[in-house]
Write a protein that binds this DNA or RNA. Structure first.
Lengths: 241, 241
DNA sequence: CTCTTAATAGTCAGTACGACTATAAAGAGG
DNA sequence: CCTCTTTATAGTCGTACTGACTATTAAGAG
């Protein structure tokens, strides 16, 4: 079949890429993985990592491949990768028509990327210092942040930011950092423990959080994926007067 | 600049399409707009309407254009159109590599589509009778249903299914139909009215819902877009024992 | 005129949540 | 060694929200 006949429409080829908003927590601050562009346009600017989708792979597969290439990680199979949305404005790349499928990825720890061939200069940048980015990546990054913040409310996604075993204080830090708020510690604890399957206590040991204070019990992620009822962000649009 | 040099990757062209899951409520049942395919593959099968993205338009623009063409509607500017996700599995179309950006659209009333040139046979089909569809459209439709059901929980989207003026009973029917549950009427009413900006009462008249019973007050959509706190679906994963 | 239907008003108990206080267990600094 | 600080954990209390109900009102059907 001739492609031009397809469903009575003209067939127009597009370049399809993936863009990755890879988020992690380092030293209590949200960081995003960025690469420095070496070519025009936006040479010297920071941009989200990404690349072309290959002929035989899906956008999800391409996203995992690019993630492995740019971070040097090899266990990309287990981590959380979420399709954000697709950006297709005709002028978003000045050179040609590029449709980009954006993903958000959440990493627990933050190894400094020892770039593969691809990303000699990929590095973690604090979220607050990430702008301005090349192309429409500012918007993609903002959308990723908003999506992750929203998903924390009604899913167990927060554990994706934590190592295999973590304390409730660390889990709370995830919420506080992504939401940019502070939470009441006893209330947070009560809420998390009251949600069946969110976290499970590791029987044996307790960990010293790195320094002072009473050692905290260790937990690992439970089998649940959704939070019922949700853990809502404070403030936003306030209560009815 | 030569496209093959773009960011050290090979440039591969893809066909980019939009697929539309257009939902409405007719006679208390969820319906979806489908077209009958005239060509192979899947000739004679039902499929979601859609088409190619043109060189100068975004996927959102293409979705609105296709929607106008396939339904014969002209006021597509005001209705709710939401990007679902992008489907890019390499073998989703047996003919060629097609990446499709899927949208969910919500229509208030349900005029029988008087097809433009494009969709001589576009028609409303009850959601329960919609499968099997061509390509991976079963999955797209299911994703659209799930997304719409989830958005009803925390957004004011339900009014998009209703005409400009509606009764609380009609609004409740939207929730019940999309969620496939029944809701307690007084509780639903209390919840909706307690959310500021969700609905506003039309001062003058009351409407007879079409037949029996006490006439209901008319409401129109308010300025709010989000529900705080959300209106959660019942059941799902039950309460902790 | 009565029955049915649907809208609206109101009650009540269980639960969740925000704000708060109290206690326990570690390190830091004298 | 003793105390202060820090962090984890336990518990309290009042308000708001929710689910399950009952009651009343206003229409059409027969």
């Amino acid at each position: 079949m001739e492609v031009a006949d397809y469903d009575k429409h003209a067939y127009e080829p597009f370049a399809v890429t993936v863009d990755l908003a890879v988020l992690t927590l380092r030293a209590g601050a949200l960081h995003v993985l960025l690469v420095e562009r070496g070519q025009e346009p936006y040479a010297g600017h920071l941009a989200l990592p990404g690349g072309f989708v290959q002929p035989a792979e899906s956008a999800e597969t391409a996203a995992r491949r690019e993630l492995a290439e740019e971070t040097g990680l090899f266990d990309v199979s287990g981590l959380h990768l979420e399709q954000l949305r697709t950006y297709s404005e005709p002028d978003r790349d000045p050179r040609m028509r590029v449709v980009s499928v954006a993903f958000a990825a959440l990493l627990p720890d933050a190894p400094e990327p020892h770039g593969g061939s691809d990303a000699a200069d990929a590095r973690w940048v604090p979220y607050s210092a990430a702008r301005p980015l090349a192309f429409d990546h500012d918007r993609i990054l903002a959308d990723a942040h908003e999506r992750v913040g929203a998903k924390l409310e009604y899913s167990c996604l927060a554990t994706a930011f934590c190592p295999a075993e973590f304390t409730l204080g660390e889990l709370q830090q995830v919420y506080e950092t992504v939401w940019g708020t502070t939470l009441d510690r006893p209330n947070f604890r009560r809420k998390v423990l009251a949600t069946p399957g969110f976290v499970e206590q590791v029987p044996g040991a307790a960990r010293l959080t790195g320094g002072r204070g009473k050692p905290a019990a260790l937990y690992r992620a439970g089998p649940a994926t959704a939070l019922h009822p949700p853990l809502l962000r404070p403030s936003r649009e306030g209560r009815p007067a």
